[in-house]
Design a protein around this nucleic acid. Sequence first.
DNA 1: CGAAGGGTTGAGGTAGATCAACAAGGGTGG
DNA 2: CCACCCTTGTTGATCTACCTCAACCCTTCG
Lengths: 253, 253
Amino acid sequence: MAPATNGHETAAVSCEHCPLRRNETFRSFREAELDFMRRFKQGELKVNRGASILMEGAQNPHFYTVLSGWAFRYKTLEDGRRQIVNFAMPGDLVGLQGSLLGAMQHSVEALSPMTLCVFDRNELFTLYQAHPELAYDVTWIASREECMLDENLLTIGRRSALERIAYLLAFIGSRSIASGLMKRSNAVTIGMTQQHVADTLGLSLVHTNKTLRKLVRRDLLRWGDGGCQVFDLKGLAELAGWEDTATEARPFL
Amino acid sequence: MAPATNGHETAAVSCEHCPLRRNETFRSFREAELDFMRRFKQGELKVNRGASILMEGAQNPHFYTVLSGWAFRYKTLEDGRRQIVNFAMPGDLVGLQGSLLGAMQHSVEALSPMTLCVFDRNELFTLYQAHPELAYDVTWIASREECMLDENLLTIGRRSALERIAYLLAFIGSRSIASGLMKRSNAVTIGMTQQHVADTLGLSLVHTNKTLRKLVRRDLLRWGDGGCQVFDLKGLAELAGWEDTATEARPFL
DNA sequence: CGAAGGGTTGAGGTAGATCAACAAGGGTGG
DNA sequence: CCACCCTTGTTGATCTACCTCAACCCTTCG
């Protein structure tokens, strides 16, 4: 639970060689947009697993697009209870909320080594003026986030522990394949601790462990080496009563 | 839980007489924007309490701004378990998600008689092209929604039943005062059933009732006449460990 | 007058919490 | 090299917050 030190910025890779563009789940840029983004991008941020990227209450001058790796977004109560509200994967915007609303209302911590594309909070409106299509994309991304949060609420509010875990792993597995975080293969590997699972689903650590073992016994997944391999994404989704709304090519910044 | 019939559209009130403009919690429009909105507005929708405004899975051609009254947004599982994810009050956008993502991923039902300002889904991008400031506002509104959902997730995931209810009533009370739904006075009146409270907080109806009575016994509120009067918003917020992030003048469409 | 919606209360059951102990790395410092 | 600690996972025992079931009340409405 202890956030480590931040990484530091390094020289930027130019946008036309953006790794995300090679992934067909992302929609392509037009020349003018690419041109704009090249100037819009302020640099790159590289952090280690466990690093704090944003802190609740802070006024961060930047917001980011995830280029590689993944992170989680969370909030805490005074007494330390923690709730993970969502995960950020390649192509996702991080810290947009703070840019619009002022202070961050949640924190973000890396779950793996990450590279993030750095933007200046104060330049956001410039983007809205110069490129309405990109502005529209930003809103699209925010709407998608909202949609995921709705589903997470349904999960925590109304699904049983077994369903919750099945949902979460199917959800993360599916997203990580789509975002190119994972290669599509027999088993999807998800590198997180059981504490993360518990804090996402509003469960205790012990009960999370016991429920996870049930899923292992059913051969839906295996746990080990600080994470799990999911064998049967469909089986998990079905168990959770969740339909993966397959997205076609989606925008990113 | 049974949705009733839709209302029907009526002649529109012109935007310069928009009731929301009289409320100081909303930021004012400039002349050019007002002009644009006048044309952007397609009409008005009036519905009764209990009416379905949007249905999960549907491709609604419109999205809306709430002018008066309030509603709740919800999702359901196949077996009927229902989760209310948030509420919509004057100034809030409804159905934006569907406009961007395609089909609605949630339903919306009126909690009181309502009037909504009707916009055409297909015109949204026109707004982005013509008025970057308004586009920015749309994203601002979406971000605020996201922020509320984060807090709701924290509530359901990590707060106890007593804290949850305290939070919910403080949250709704505070929002309804800010949006002009309620007059600021000794007691804030919230017109919803205990079933709504239960479905928002992931609790059973019976336990919701018992917990509510505890709050009544503590003189924080009274329940009756199909809703409750909240006497002590601060006390509830404190009990829940929640800080009301007071918003200054905010945008709306 | 009966039916339906909303609220209230008690009794008993269970999913999931808490407490406690232990095992298996991995890192660090002597 | 060992000794130690810290993180992560595992499992059993016990407890309790919340659920389900089952009444019953009151009000509204056809």
